[in-house]
Design a protein around this nucleic acid. Structure first.
Lengths: 342, 342
DNA sequence: GAAACAACTGGTAGCGCTACCATGACGCAG
DNA sequence: CTGCGTCATGGTAGCGCTACCAGTTGTTTC
C-alpha cells in the first residue's frame, strides 16, 4: 500500500486529513473554514481541534483552482519610489492586513504598454479585485479590466466614466486652486514647473493655465516642463531654466513637492528671497513641506485615505453589495504656509 | 451531451483545447510551453499556432497546484513609504519584469510578529523564492524561512549566519565611517540623532559609539533617540531636544536622511550656521541630500543594486546553481559635502 | 398525520495543469 | 541481427480544494 499523497505535496496535512481526524466529510471542513455559520457549533469545534492539532493550513493554490477565484488583490501603480503612490499602497495594505487577501503589486513605470502587459499577467489568475492608478488606460487595458470578472477600482483621479469604480480627486481643480492662491497673494508672473508630465501633471498644468487665463496673466514662456523623472535636483535645474527664460518670474507652482523642494534650495543658493522675491507652491503636501524653512505652501491630497477607500469599495463589491456611488471624490486642501505669505 | 468545462472556468481555453487543435497530447503542449527544447521543431510550431489562434494563457493557479510551486516571489519589507526599501523593491521589480514570476509584497511595519504572520500567509502557497529585509527574524520566522523549501535571500545587512543567502552592507561600519569623518573634520561634541530605532539603526548607533569611544569623545548625553517613525518634522524636534540637553553640540550624525533634512531646516530656522557651528551627516544619500543648501554629507547605500543582486541570487538558486558566495557585501560610500566642510 | 420545508451533512465530479511512467521509433555498439 | 540507450510523445493519475446535487434529520404547517 503506497501513500501517494506524500509524493508531491511534501507531506503537509490536507483537508482530507482534517476530515478524517474530525470524523466528518471533507466538504464540511471546507465549509467550517469558509462559512462557519453553515456548520453546527459542535462539528465546528471538532474541526477546529483537528485543524489545530494537525497544523492544517488550506492550500491557496488548490483553493484558487477549485473556486476559479484567487484571494489576491492586483494593484498597479506607475512608480514604487514615488511617495505619492507609496502612500496609496500603504492605505491598501493596511486595509487588507486583517483579510485573507494577499496583494500582488505591479509597477507600470508610467507606461501604458507596461500596464497592459501586467494586466495580461494578473488577469489569468482571476484576482478578487483590481486597483489601478489613473484613468488613462489604453483601449486594450480597459478591455482587460472590463472583462476581468472582478471589481475594479481606479484611483487618484476623478471623472465621469470609470471602468467600474473610481476614488480620487481633481488634479485640474488642485492646479487651479494653487495658482489662484498665488494670484490672490499678489504674484503676477506665476510660472509652472513640472517634471515627468504624466496625465495627472498635465491636468494640474491645465488647471494652472485656466486660472492664469482667467486672470489675464497667462504667458506660455511661464511654463517649464520636462519628461524627465522628478527629483529635488531636477527642481533646482528647472528653476534655473525658468529664470533664464523669464527673469521677471515672481512665483512658481510646482507639479510636485520634490520639485518644490529643489526650487526652494535653489532660491537659498542663489540668495533669492522666499516668499518676497519668489513665491512657491508644491503639490501633495509631503511631511517635509511643513518642516522646510521657510515652510512651503502645498496642495494636500488624501492619498492614504484613497487607498483605504478603494479597498473598502472593492470589498463591498466582493460581498455583493452595490456601491452607493461609483465615483468618490476625496478632494484636496490648500495648505497656506510661509512660502507664499507676502 | 453536456460541456462541463464551461461550468466553472468561464470558458477560457484550456491546455486540452490547444492539444486538440494542434493534434497532440496535452502534456506535449505543456512541455512545449515550459521546456521548448524537449519538443520537436515541427510540433512546437503547430502548438504555437494553436495557442495564438485560441488566445490560450496557462492558468497559474492550476500550474501551481500541479507542480506544487507557484511562480511567485514573496518579498517582505518593514515599510512601503520609506524610500530606502522602496528602492530595494524597485530593484527587485526591475529584475523580475521579464520573468514569469509575479511578486507578492508584504509590509511588516517593523514588527517581528507581523513578519511571522506574513510568512505564515506566504509559505503555504509555495513561493519560488522569498526575499526578506533584515537578519533579526524571530525564531519562528527563521524556522518558517528554513522550511519554506525555496531560496531565501535576506537583504540590507551583512553577517555571518544567513538563513540561506544575504545581500547588503554593514550598518555598523557605515555609522562608524560617518562618525570618524566628523571627528576628522574637527568636530568634537558629535551627537547621534535617531528615530525609529530598528535593528539597523541600532547598529549604526553602535558604529557611532565605537568611533566616539575610540577617539575618547563618547558621552551618553550626546545620543538622542526615539522609537517614533522617522520624518523631517521629527528631525527638527530631535535637534531641539539634543541642543537643549547638550548646548555645546557641534555636529550630528543622523540615522537617516529624513532626520538630517529636518536638522538642516531647524538650523536654518534657528540661524545656526552649517557647517560652521554644526556639522551634519545623514544616512542613505537620497537625491535631496545633494540638492540641499548647504548640500549634506551622507552615507550612500546601494539599495537598488541590493534588490537586483538578491533576485539574481534567487534566480540562480532556482536554476539549480549553487551560489559562489552566500553572503554578498555591497558596501557603502561616504559622500563628503558642504555640511561637514569646515 | 402527511406534506412541505429548513438546516445540516456528505458524495461525486471536476477545476486545469504537470509528475510519473510507458510506449514506440531510431541509432548504435557488439 | 540483437540488445540497449536515447529521444520524442502520450496516457494516467493525481495535486488539494470546492461546486453541485443529493440525502438525512428534525421541524413546521394545514
Amino acid at each position: 500500500m503506497i501513500k501517494p499523497r506524500s509524493r508531491r505535496g511534501g507531506g503537509r496535512p490536507t483537508i482530507a486529513d482534517v476530515a478524517r481526524k474530525a470524523g466528518v466529510g471533507a466538504i464540511t471542513v471546507s465549509r467550517a473554514l469558509r462559512e462557519p455559520g453553515r456548520v453546527s457549533e459542535e462539528l465546528r469545534r471538532q474541526i477546529q481541534a483537528a485543524v489545530d492539532e494537525l497544523g492544517y493550513v488550506p492550500d491557496p493554490n488548490a483553493r484558487a483552482l477549485a473556486s476559479a477565484r484567487a484571494e489576491v488583490f492586483g494593484v498597479l501603480v506607475p512608480s514604487l519610489t514615488n511617495n505619492v503612490f507609496a502612500e496609496v499602497v500603504r492605505g491598501i495594505y493596511d486595509s487588507l492586513s486583517d483579510s485573507p487577501f494577499r496583494i500582488q503589486l505591479g509597477n507600470t513605470h508610467y507606461s501604458g504598454l507596461e500596464e497592459e502587459r501586467l494586466l495580461q499577467v494578473f488577469a489569468p489568475q482571476r484576482p478578487a479585485a483590481l486597483i489601478v492608478a489613473g484613468i488613462d488606460q489604453t483601449p486594450t487595458s480597459r478591455r482587460l479590466l472590463e472583462t476581468a470578472g472582478c471589481p475594479v477600482v481606479q484611483v487618484m483621479e476623478t471623472g465621469p466614466d470609470p471602468v467600474d469604480m473610481l476614488v480620487g480627486f481633481s488634479h485640474f481643480d488642485g492646479g487651479r486652486a494653487a495658482t489662484e492662491h498665488l494670484i490672490e497673494a499678489g504674484y503676477r508672473r506665476v510660472g509652472f514647473i513640472g517634471a515627468r508630465m504624466d496625465p495627472r501633471s498635465q491636468r494640474r498644468l491645465a488647471g494652472y493655465r485656466a486660472a492664469m487665463e482667467a486672470a489675464g496673466l497667462f504667458d506660455p514662456r511661464l511654463v517649464t516642463t520636462t519628461p524627465l523623472l522628478s527629483s529635488v535636483t531636477l527642481g533646482r535645474e528647472l528653476l534655473r531654466d525658468a529664470l533664464a527664460k523669464m527673469p521677471s518670474l515672481d512665483a512658481v507652482f510646482c507639479n510636485n513637492d520634490d520639485i518644490a523642494l529643489g526650487v526652494l534650495f535653489e532660491c537659498h543658493r542663489a540668495a533669492i528671497e522666499v516668499p518676497k522675491t519668489i513665491g512657491i507652491v508644491g503639490f501633495n503636501d509631503l511631511d517635509m513641506m511643513q518642516a522646510a524653512f521657510p515652510s512651503v505652501t502645498s496642495i494636500r491630497t488624501h492619498r492614504y485615505e484613497i487607498g483605504r477607500q478603494a479597498v473598502a469599495m472593492a470589498l463591498a463589491a466582493i460581498a455583493g453589495e452595490r456601491p452607493r456611488q461609483r465615483v468618490v471624490d476625496l478632494g484636496f486642501e490648500l495648505m497656506r504656509r510661509e512660502s507664499t505669505a507676502r
